[in-house]
Design a protein around this nucleic acid. Structure first.
Lengths: 353, 353
DNA sequence: GTGAAAGCGCTAACAG
DNA sequence: CTGTTAGCGCTTTCAC
């Protein structure tokens, strides 16, 4: 009962397997009476198509591979969610890949693509394996990059304007009257970290503020690194009055460290993060940060991938998704300064091809 | 170049496809010289097996399906990580499923199993679809339940002792001298929520403390529900001095609400959570909670599933993984009481078959 | 130790 | 509109 094949339905109804196949796939070339007889019999015999057979025949797997750098990082969750939802709607399943920043693993996933495990791939790894281990024609592979740019890959991207959003975040601090603004960056020279630092620099320069080398430190996106670098910044003879931190997790670390040093946030020091992860709002104080439309990025990446899999070329295309600046309680006017900062949220960014 | 088949290697070497297949799969019945010639040619011609063809022939997919109730919940992340790691090591890929508590979706994933999308399934949904939509012989399907029990399913489980761990958490509060201990439960009548409440009740009764109906409230595991129920408990004429909250997210909500009410944690009220999610440690105050070995649960579930897929029967088997009680800063001795609470971490739970 | 042949379940090209 | 035929790429009898 549980393993009826097309052949069984054909036998049951005295039809050929081909007709049954056509009826089941709505090919239109089947007479209505036959069609419903087939559908009824399929239902009754509990027919389910065998995916391996179909995949072999059609040379497709109806699956996409979603490869992230660290599957344990909650940051990627909503993207997965968006990808999964859009994939389902299009009839695709999602295979999970986790590289753990391991080059061999990255190559493996490209191999899986070629082996027919999946028809396309969404890369959220911020990098590619070495050129020599990659297939010759990268551009011809159905691969879309999301979130973390892979520069000079020529692959289509779905991401945010990291420079612009970072700049907006720092300008918020400037409007609050801050001048001594430090930056805890991500793991430069990674692209995303570099872009956010660039946004910081442009905002500072745009306001005619000095770029001090001792106000720029490089972290690794993890919480302890936020603590450590915060301590370092406050050991300077002239510590900052505000810090723009490249991601929320390090920002949490910085805030906790300030609490330990009995420096109050935001009264004495303002902190701005980036990402708006789960709990950034529930944290104390609620974190002012840049919110990325993660689920939408996931959906958009999948939508773009579908187009690429259907043969459209999107080489070099970059889709920018809008970010939202969330003004919360971790930032406040510089004491003694008359500031004019906005409150609430501000949409930033546009979309172009 | 990029799509060499077994046939191509055979032609290249003047062998039969059968021999090439055998050589590549180490079947042992191939002479050594032939074997290495084949391996060399495979390398040179960039041979990669076609998974659909192999799957069709072998009637397996070498993939497992991991179905969670809400893919956006960071709580499941480490489990995914464990499953993925163990699956990779065994040569399996992982397909993601997300039910969003939707019964139809749940059925779909069972169908995917039967359709050959995957060879086995790990369920982290806390429930099964209605009996009539399920295959007759549930026990014969390679399905393993993790984390959230599905009672009376007869399926093998990998989980923690929710009653025991909850009881230990509440006993910690009792040892600190607390007597007026309330409980914000999960969405009863769900199994996990019910078990944790049962642990609370047993601890209270075991210590001869009164079980007050107004000290038991039912939440939904989400943050706002923690805020709401905390407020409710503190509107009682005799508010609690400690709250055992069924999960960390609601505990964060409770702590935030207490802060708003200017009630200090842990000086005036102690809070214990459950789960030890990302940031429970970085939260302020760091949350005393029950830590689950999530990655290990994921690995163990996959390991068990492999055995089930290899034909072993594990009907009704329950594997209990040990929890660790994390004493952090959200709990303190009742003011005026002489307490004897432990500090640090305590391992709880055993493992049996 | 190797080859020939069959077939997994499905779909598509070609006839009629 | 329906049937016949072939074949996707692989593994596995069964012979030799």
């Amino acid at each position: 009962m549980s393993r009826a094949r097309i052949k069984d339905i054909a036998a049951e109804l005295g039809l050929s397997p081909a007709t049954v196949s056509r009826a089941l796939s709505d090919s239109g070339l089947v007479a209505e009476p036959t069609r419903s007889r087939v559908r009824e019999a399929a239902q009754r015999l509990n027919y389910r198509p065998n995916v391996s057979a179909r995949n072999l025949r059609t040379q497709r797997s109806m699956a996409v591979l979603m490869v992230v750098r660290d599957i344990g990082n909650p940051f990627y969750l909503d993207i997965v969610k968006g990808v999964e939802a859009a994939a389902r709607e299009a009839g695709y399943s999602v295979l999970m890949g986790n590289t753990e920043n391991n080059a061999e693993r990255e190559v493996e996933y490209f191999d899986m693509l070629r082996d027919g495990h999946a028809d396309g791939m969404i890369l959220i790894t911020g990098k590619l394996p070495d050129a020599e281990s990659l297939p010759e024609a990268l551009h011809d592979l159905p691969v879309v990059v999301a979130l973390e740019p892979i520069e000079e890959s020529g692959l289509p991207h779905v991401m945010i304007d990291n420079i612009g959003a970072a700049r907006e975040a720092v300008e918020h601090l400037i409007k609050l009257g801050h001048k001594r603004i430090a930056h805890i960056a991500g793991p430069i020279p990674e692209a995303m970290a570099t872009l956010r630092r660039e946004g910081y620099r442009r905002a500072m320069q745009g306001a005619g503020l000095e770029l001090r080398a001792d106000y720029e430190v490089i972290g690794d996106y993890q919480l302890p690194s936020g603590e450590r670098h915060c301590r370092q910044l406050f050991s300077l003879s002239e510590p900052p009055t505000a810090i723009f931190v490249a991601n929320d997790e390090m920002a949490f670390g910085a805030i906790n460290e300030l609490r330990r040093m009995s420096v109050s946030v935001p009264e004495e020091v303002s902190i701005v993060g980036f990402d708006d992860i789960f709990l950034s709002q529930a944290f104390y104080p609620p974190l002012t940060t840049v919110s990325q439309p993660r689920t939408a990025i996931g959906r958009e990446a999948m939508r773009l991938l579908l187009e690429v899999m259907h043969g459209e070329s999107h080489t070099g295309e970059i889709i920018m998704m809008p970010t939202t600046f969330q003004t919360r309680a971790s930032t406040a006017p510089l004491r003694g300064a008359s500031a004019s900062a906005r409150t609430g949220e501000t949409v930033f960014g546009k979309r172009h091809a």
